[in-house]
Simulated scan of single mutants.
Amino acid sequence: MESEQGKKANYPRFYRQSLDKLAKEQRILSSRKKGSGRWEKQRLKVAGIQEKTANQRKNFLHHKSKELASNFDAVVIEDLNMKGMSQALHFGKSVHDNGWGMFTTFLAYKLKEQGKQMVKIDKWFPSTKKCSCCGAEKPMSLAERTYHCSCGYVADRDYNSAINIKKEGLRLLALA
């Protein structure tokens, strides 16, 4: 199968899409008297919006994990601490909305069912700081979106990181 180099995973932000509607219904709920019939009806409305968002996310993640499991014999991912990222980097809602933990779980069992492999790269592996061309390392702030190396290599930060993760995954597969 052809490689999908340069293709970014554009996650449809389901929570962000429903945020305005959810906020409106929650404001209505907060003005109702707790325990009343109207409060209960409004509570169910809010719960319905939250359930729809969760189901959309789960459906999307099932489809993406199935697509990867069907098309590749091995999938290499970085073992990210998403909870830490959401707190330290102030990405809260965005990090939680993408359902990374759920996605890795779905992907792992689908690959295992088909006798394929999932390789997790250690979260401390310097995938972003390492040049995918010459292997040199340099510190990079989160604000820098383009990787510039002293060897002359220039690439998108995420693309460079993906190449490094792929190389490390292939190295680990060769050791296994």
Rank of each mutant, 00 (worst) to 15 (best):
Y15E: 04
E40F: 10
L142D: 05
S30I: 03
K52R: 15
I28T: 10
E2R: 06
G6P: 13
M118W: 00
K21E: 11
G84K: 11
W39R: 08
H63E: 14
G135I: 11
Y159T: 14
G135C: 08
N160Y: 03
H63L: 10
S132R: 11
N81Y: 12
N160A: 02
K112P: 01
K167R: 11
D79V: 02
G84T: 08
P12W: 00
A176R: 07
N59D: 15
G84Y: 07
M1H: 10
K66F: 07
S127W: 06
D20Y: 05
F60K: 03
K110N: 05
S86H: 06
Q87F: 02
K8H: 10
S141A: 13
S70R: 07
I163R: 08
E113G: 08
W39V: 04
E168N: 08
F14I: 00
G6R: 00
Q5A: 11
T128F: 02
A69I: 04
A155C: 11
S70P: 01
C151F: 07
Q26E: 12
Y147I: 06
P126Q: 01
M118T: 00
R157G: 05
F91T: 05
S36W: 15
R32I: 10
L19M: 12
L172A: 10
C131I: 12
K21W: 06
E144D: 13
N81P: 02
G6K: 00
E4R: 06
H90Q: 10
H148Y: 09
Y147D: 04
F106Q: 01
K45N: 08
M118S: 00
Q87V: 09
G84M: 07
E78Q: 12
V76I: 15
G92L: 02
S150K: 06
Y11A: 00
E113M: 10
M85H: 14
K112F: 11
G115N: 07
L107S: 07
D156F: 01
C149M: 03
K66S: 15
K52G: 00
E137P: 13
M85A: 14
C131Y: 08
I49S: 01
E67V: 00
G84V: 07
D97N: 12
S3L: 03
E144T: 14
F125C: 08
S65I: 05
H90C: 13
A54H: 05
L80T: 00
I28C: 03
